[in-house]
């Protein structure tokens, strides 16, 4: 499979009042056509910033300070706003966390679908409306034709997130950035929405960058996982590999926190200590203060990426089996 999205050494800085903070540093990853890449990490690790950078939606005070983003082999981080805009919503779509606030409260669902469709596709109003109705049916909204005339407040949270999915899929994108698409929803509805997202992607071969806190979702829905820590990817590899044999001590900690696949919503903070913030960076490996196998060099030198089989790990002791047992 060829890489649909290729992010190389991405660096995002934030111009704070007095100095410049580094939110994302040396982040590289790929997503293949039709692949679902899970992105996990503690709150503030830089997951949303990474997704926002891919969408080209970074806003002051954050900006891309380095690296390249390629989509379908074409560099998109240097595109002008207009060219980027025609890509957004058409080739790369987004689903955000809160369906309650993602839709314009003053506009009917049908109008929001139609305006998105007509922005990107050369369809007449009637054809666009037809397509909008089909999309609502596809995301499982009952009586889709009548629902086109509804306003967002007339729908439940789960229904609204289905509408958001319809909006994301309305121009058959090749990639969807889904930033915690189910976190704001009722637990009982989370699985339905996730299944829907996964099914629609599989049917169409749409690739997804799926940001989540839910290790159960990672295990069930993703092909590969990227683990982020303090603005970097500390380990990335096939989900199956990471679940059973992660190389980074932080990933191992995360995986150990999935006691049971059926129990969702596990706390990611079972490892004692807290992640360094962009305004108080740590020298060497950002994880070393919390790491059980850290040595002197970990607090001084930042580890390089090491390729281990299908995975890539940023740890000085990656591949050192004696260490992983010793923990």
């Amino acid at each position: 499979m060829s890489a649909l999205l290729k992010v190389e050494s991405l660096r995002v800085e934030i111009a704070a009042r007095t100095r410049i903070l580094t939110a994302i540093d040396e982040v590289s990853f790929e997503i293949s056509e039709g692949e679902i890449l899970g992105v996990v990490g503690e709150s503030g690790a830089g997951k949303s910033v990474t997704g926002t950078a891919v969408l080209g939606l970074l806003e002051k005070p954050a900006y891309q300070a380095g690296g390249r983003i390629l989509f379908g082999g074409q560099r998109i981080d240097t595109l002008g706003e207009d060219a980027l805009r025609t890509l957004r919503g058409k080739e790369i779509a987004a689903v955000f966390q809160d369906p309650l606030t993602s839709l314009d409260p003053l506009m009917t669902i049908g109008d929001q679908l139609v305006e998105t469709i007509q922005t990107h596709l050369p369809l007449k109003a009637g054809e666009a409306l037809e397509r909008a109705g089909q999309l609502l049916a596809e995301v499982g909204i009952p009586a889709p034709r009548e629902r086109l005339r509804s306003y967002p407040h007339e729908l439940s949270g789960g229904m609204r997130q289905r509408v958001v999915l319809a909006l994301a899929f309305c121009c058959e994108p090749r990639l969807i950035i889904a930033d915690e698409p189910t976190t704001a929803l009722d637990v009982s509805i989370q699985a339905q929405i996730l299944d829907l997202l996964r099914r629609m992607c599989r049917e169409r071969g749409t690739a997804v960058m799926l940001v989540t806190h839910d290790m159960g979702v990672i295990a069930e829905a993703t092909d590969r996982v990227a683990v982020m820590y303090a603005g970097r990817i500390v380990e990335i590899g096939p989900t199956a590999t990471l679940l059973v044999g992660a190389s980074h001590p932080y990933t191992r900690g995360l995986m150990a926190s999935i006691p049971d696949m059926r129990r969702r919503e596990v706390e990611l903070t079972q490892i004692p200590g807290s992640m360094p913030r962009p305004d108080a960076p740590v020298s060497g490996c950002a994880f070393h203060p919390r790491c059980s196998i850290a040595e002197a060099r970990c607090s001084v030198e930042r580890p390089d990426d090491v390729v281990i089989g299908p995975s890539r790990v940023a740890c000085w002791f990656a591949g050192d089996t004696s260490r992983s047992v010793a923990r």
């Binding site: 025609t86 957004r88 919503g89 314009d104 998105t116």
Partner: peptide, 8 residues
Amino acid sequence: RFARARGL
């Protein structure tokens, strides 16, 4: 923000 992401 979502409207921007929709490419409007």
